[in-house]
Amino acid sequence: MTDASGTEPVGDSPGDPDAPLTRRDAADTRRTTPIAPELHAQIRAARNEFESQVAHARAEFDQANERIKERTGRNLILATLIGLAIGLLLLASLVFLKWVFVIFAVAASVLGIFEFSRALQGAGRRVDVIPQLIAGTLLVIGGWFLELWLLWVAVFAAVAFVVVWRLVAQMFVKDGRTYGGVLRDVLTAGFIQLYVPFLTALCIVLLRQDGGEWWVLSFIIIAVASDTGAYATGLAFGKHPMAPKISPKKTWEGFGGAAVAALIAGVLLALFMLGLPWWTGLICGAVILLTATAGDLGESMVKRDLGIKDMSSWLPGHGGVLDRLDSILPSTIGALALYYLLSPLAAS
């Protein structure tokens, strides 16, 4: 209903409290009307309950993480996040550009040589870090360019280089070091080259083969699955030590979990990644299981001899670079041998 001017009635006067409300005034009134106190109370109660549940869940999670950390000496959450980040970088480098993985491998080798050398120096060994890094870097790069037989020549040259450097350096020092100490230093120098850069170079040799990126990815996955299976099973059921004098926390139950995980991963990778018969996956899983376990126990023995828990603390939750590569590096030998033996089956 409008008046003669065509406007809606607004009452007797704008300030008249008894005047009828216009549609705009009614809308403004609804918007400015406060929410009922009861609804406010319900919202606050619901929010407090939610915050309480989150705090309780976080407390339980932290307690569980502390129990795991107390038993294993690792921050599980931080270790998992770092492991995932490294895994994504590794996967991206293998899938998209092989040469990017070579850079990744050189960097890992350099860090591994450096932290191993520093750990040995801390235990009283005489290690020449600079020549170790030079020889090791050239050796890893040689894995991309040299044939396998030439790589053996290269590793011999690298070992000879660091050994001669150590002997000459010892001659100039003349500090009265015993013959046994000098011999130990020389053997240590050669071992560093054989353990870190040479095994890394074998991985590069495998990488450059036809379809080698999938073989590298497969054996790394099997090694990681083996480690994860051993960790989870040992944490949940481990009671019988496997090698108490070398690594007291490793158990036969953990080894059983590692075996199951490695064999399952091997079969799945053989079928869906390598194009091999399923039974070859059992062979791959078994071989990598043994080499990964041997590598893990071998580094544990070295660290026990040096009196250290981790090679370094560069990777929170993991220790050092070599603490993550201990099962992978020795597995390069088995993986390369498996490639030469089983890859012809993929073409048939």
Rank of each mutant, 00 (worst) to 15 (best):
K309P: 05
H40E: 12
I221M: 14
S226Q: 14
L217S: 09
E147C: 01
L315N: 09
F61D: 12
S13K: 10
M273E: 09
L207N: 04
S93E: 02
A292M: 05
A158I: 04
R126C: 07
A286C: 05
K98F: 01
W279S: 11
D3Q: 07
T137E: 05
L167H: 00
D3G: 15
L263Q: 05
L297N: 13
M1D: 07
R118G: 00
D16C: 08
T228G: 06
D210N: 11
L89C: 13
V260A: 15
F272M: 00
A59C: 00
V205S: 09
L111I: 11
S52F: 10
L202Y: 04
G317P: 06
L325S: 06
L202V: 15
F156D: 06
A346L: 03
S5K: 14
S300W: 06
L97M: 06
M242V: 01
I86E: 02
T2D: 03
D305C: 00
A292T: 15
P9I: 04
V155P: 02
D12H: 12
G190M: 01
W278M: 10
M171P: 02
S313V: 06
G307E: 15
Q42F: 06
G190H: 03
V140N: 11
R44M: 10
L81T: 11
V100Y: 02
K174A: 15
L120R: 02
V205G: 04
A346Y: 01
E8G: 08
F145C: 05
T332M: 00
A286H: 07
L271R: 13
L235D: 02
V321T: 14
L322K: 08
A27T: 11
A292L: 08
M301G: 02
E8Q: 10
E253H: 11
A243V: 01
V173N: 06
A335K: 03
P131N: 13
P197T: 06
W215E: 09
G334N: 01
E299L: 13
G256S: 10
A79L: 07
S109A: 14
S343M: 10
G87A: 08
P34S: 08
T280V: 11
L207P: 01
A19P: 03
P316S: 13
L290K: 00
Q121N: 12
G275T: 08
K309N: 10
L139V: 12
F50K: 12
R44G: 03
G136R: 04
N65G: 11
T251I: 08
A154V: 08
A294C: 12
L199K: 03
W278C: 06
K174I: 09
A158T: 07
L207S: 05
F191S: 13
A27L: 15
P277F: 12
G295K: 05
E38N: 09
E70Y: 00
A119W: 02
S300C: 06
A335F: 04
D210T: 11
G6S: 03
L202I: 15
G83N: 10
V129Y: 06
I288W: 02
H56A: 15
F114I: 00
F145V: 14
D25M: 14
R126K: 14
T32Y: 09
R177S: 14
D25W: 08
P9M: 06
